[in-house]
Write a protein that binds this DNA or RNA. Structure first.
Lengths: 365, 365
DNA sequence: CTGAAAGCGCTTACAG
DNA sequence: CTGAAAGCGCTTACAG
């Protein structure tokens, strides 16, 4: 066995080089394009924004110059002038370890970077920390705040923000309020689609692991499951419904309970991926082969779904896209309000996708 | 059992309202502050940037006005004028499902949003897609590109970018090149620290699961482990070293192999969290209680580390912070080059943290 | 140490 | 349908 080194290997950089670097490329402006096309800068501005009132010939000419000069908009400059993106948007979160959070942030930050709006991340410690967190956001001068779960369902937080004239958007809530904009998927339909999928695979003996009763999607996912079973005329046995809390640990306990029932189900539908991953681990321990002897599926399509083996069949929530949509919508709403309007709240329902992976298969005969 | 509903529950918004909203807050500018403080705008600009050459009295006065008016910098406007942040930075990634990726992005986007630089995310499909992806980035007019693993170690990608005058930064590489800036932790020291921790807990029989031989951190983490064992005068049994590939599935196989050895180790140190999570699942299946009968630990502190139960003791890589640092450093390097300089590459080594969680405990007597 | 002027790259509002 | 002017909020470069 190789003898260990005491000094840090590669602690400094290695003595390898690549090549010398030429001068950095220069980026062109709207005026360069205008000069190249022989038109006014205003026309270029109209073309790149896709505004109406530009003759086709002119548009063609400008677009050619844009390509020729490899022009790219300077979003920072654009933001300076157009009120739209001068928006300051907060994201108030409370559960930083949730796997969906970084995807929400990623989508939101990406969109914000496109619009050159300014995003402010604020963490709220427990429920008691709400007031403090809202105060910090107000001190930062936010025009709007996006609320991911579970704060998306906190009437108190929403009320505090709105009392100060701040625009609010609830993200991934299952229970949107009529006068607060929201971005979400349809949890009921998602669970229904998964249940139909299992039934189409020939499963009749389907168990279900419920989520945390405190969270709004829990009930809808369960109802979607019940609806799917009912429309196929299948029974839902009480001993095949286990209570979970959306955590891996609760999934471990729930799965153990399901396996102790007299009859073993041929499929387990867990209402999120963490609990489905736990069910997989329990099955593995009991030497139950997945998917040969047991189908397991989840909900959300978070990172763990593709980490475990076999990879989980699950309902994909387009979380990053929801983050993007949330920023777009709230910035638009803020803009409208700044212009003196009173925009109606928008409720944006995004499509989910059933990801058919290796953890599910036809029911054993 | 409750009868299922056919219609989508809560498919539209609920009939609940909150409160009416007052007018949105207006944000103040540098000139408002200047007027309030009775000074020139330039002085305010100097104070908020923390520039030298401002008398303490003046600074005090301006800061009071900043607080009074709740002034917040408009980063977009700032970016317009200061060349620094006009930077366009690409992030070229190839493994979108990697759990560290969204954290890198999150840190990077956050920093970029602060600097009002422009981030462009580009995905490269397989190794063959490198050329295409680089072309797309060049077409987008990038000044610099950040390379997360595994592309951080691709000499070809780096060479292509630099040939076009693009500044490159390698993120989380274990083998930095001397003339390419990098941001990383010390993998050797991290593994050494974990090994020492296990030994301090009384473990003598420690098994190790190696990572993918293609990835640069693999060797260093293994060497860190060997060094720790050697300095304590402990043997490393060949049958207690298993080869993995950094995937959960490979961890499953590696752990099974370790348990088939004649003697069972009292601790398993997996060189990443996915494989440690797999080892946990295998132990669970074999009714081996963790941490009572077996200690399991990982490396990276990705989301899965706190998803599984018991939660994993692991080495925390400050991934989001590394993303932030990468953006800061590359923007600074781009700025320096734009001003005509030839800045030396920077090698930034961030501290790791040993997260002592529930999956590790003292060795059984 | 402080400030008035010019300008960043774009869009708004106003003329033709 | 097209464009010249003014201005967004800030910083750079130049005077004092």
């Amino acid at each position: 066995m190789k003898s260990p080194r005491k000094a840090r290997p590669a602690s400094g950089a290695e003595a390898t080089t690549v090549t010398a670097r030429p001068a950095p490329p220069r980026t062109s402006t709207i005026h360069d394009v205008a000069r190249h096309a022989g038109v006014g800068s205003m026309t270029v501005s109209r073309v790149i924004r896709g505004t109406a009132n530009v003759s086709p010939a002119m548009r063609e000419r400008v677009e050619a110059s844009v390509r020729a000069l490899n022009y790219q908009v300077n979003v920072a400059a654009r933001a300076t002038r157009s009120r739209a993106s001068a928006a300051r948007v907060g994201i108030l979160y409370s559960n930083p370890s949730a796997s969906y959070l970084s995807d929400i942030m990623m989508g939101g930050l990406e969109q914000s970077s496109k619009l050159a709006s300014h995003l402010i991340l604020e963490r709220c410690e427990g429920l008691a920390g709400q007031k403090q967190a809202v105060k910090r956001l107000l001190a930062a001068g936010v025009d709007g705040v996006i609320l991911p779960p579970p704060l998306c369902d906190s009437r108190q937080t929403i009320a505090m923000l709105r009392a100060e004239g701040v625009t609010v958007l609830a993200l991934a809530t299952a229970r949107p309020m009529v006068d607060v904009s929201s971005v979400r998927i349809d949890d009921f339909e998602g669970a229904l689609a998964m249940t139909r999928h299992l039934i189409a695979l020939g499963h009749r003996d389907i168990a279900f692991i419920k989520g945390d009763p405190q969270h709004t999607p829990t009930q809808l996912r369960y109802e979607g499951f019940l609806a799917g079973m009912a429309e196929a005329g299948l029974d839902v046995r009480p001993e095949w419904v286990a209570q979970g809390l959306f955590t891996y640990r609760s999934g471990l306990a729930a799965a153990e309970k399901l396996f102790e029932a007299r009859l073993r189900p041929s499929a387990i539908f867990a209402s999120n991926d963490d609990m489905a991953a736990a069910a997989l681990a329990v099955a593995h321990g009991r030497q139950i082969a997945v998917p040969r002897d047991l189908t397991v599926c989840g909900f959300d399509d978070t990172a763990v779904a593709t980490t475990v083996w076999p990879e989980l069949t699950t309902i994909h929530q387009p979380i990053a896209e929801m983050g993007r949509a949330a920023v777009s919508l709230i910035v638009e709403e803020i803009r409208a309000r700044k212009l003196g309007g009173d925009p109606a709240p928008v409720h944006h329902l995004l499509p989910f996708t059933l990801m058919d992976r290796a953890s599910s298969d036809a029911a054993p005969p």
